[in-house]
Simulated assay, not measured.
Amino acid sequence: MKPELWEQPIFFARNRVSRVYRGGLLFSNFLGDAKEDGFYPEEWIASNVRALNSGHTDPLEGISRTEESGIPFSKLLSETPEKYLGNRQDIGVLVKFLDSAIRLPMQVHPTREFAQKNFHSSYGKAEAWLILETRKDACIYFGFSRSVSRQEFEAAVLQSATDKNCMTQFVNRIPVQPGDIFFVPAGVIHAIGAGCLLLEAQEPTDFTIQPEEWCGDYHLNTQEMYLGLSPNTALDCFDFSRYGQSVAAAGKKVPVTLQETAGTRHERLIGADDTPCFRMERYILTGGTAPLDHPAGIYIITHGSGTITGSNYKRPVGRGNYFFLPAHAAEHFTIQGNLELICCVGG
Results as ranks from 00 to 15, higher is better:
residue 180 D to V: 09
residue 181 I to Y: 03
residue 182 F to I: 02
residue 182 F to Y: 15
residue 183 F to K: 05
residue 184 V to Q: 11
residue 184 V to L: 14
residue 184 V to E: 01
residue 185 P to T: 03
residue 186 A to N: 08
residue 186 A to P: 09
residue 187 G to L: 02
residue 193 G to F: 03
residue 194 A to M: 03
residue 195 G to S: 10
residue 195 G to F: 04
residue 195 G to N: 06
residue 196 C to I: 07
residue 197 L to N: 00
residue 197 L to Q: 02
residue 197 L to A: 00
residue 198 L to E: 03
residue 199 L to N: 02
residue 199 L to V: 08
residue 199 L to C: 11
residue 200 E to D: 05
residue 202 Q to F: 01
residue 204 P to D: 05
residue 204 P to V: 05
residue 205 T to E: 09
residue 206 D to Q: 04
residue 207 F to I: 15
residue 207 F to K: 05
residue 208 T to A: 12
residue 208 T to S: 14
residue 209 I to K: 05
residue 210 Q to N: 04
residue 211 P to L: 13
residue 211 P to Y: 12
residue 212 E to Y: 04
residue 214 W to N: 07
residue 214 W to G: 01
residue 214 W to E: 09
residue 214 W to R: 06
residue 215 C to E: 14
residue 215 C to G: 04
residue 215 C to D: 15
residue 217 D to P: 03
residue 218 Y to D: 06
residue 218 Y to K: 07
residue 218 Y to Q: 04
residue 218 Y to E: 10
residue 219 H to K: 15
residue 221 N to P: 03
residue 227 L to C: 12
residue 227 L to F: 02
residue 229 L to M: 07
residue 229 L to S: 08
residue 229 L to D: 06
residue 230 S to V: 07
residue 230 S to Q: 13
residue 232 N to T: 15
residue 233 T to E: 14
residue 234 A to F: 11
residue 235 L to Q: 03
residue 236 D to C: 10
residue 236 D to Y: 04
residue 237 C to M: 13
residue 238 F to S: 02
residue 239 D to P: 03
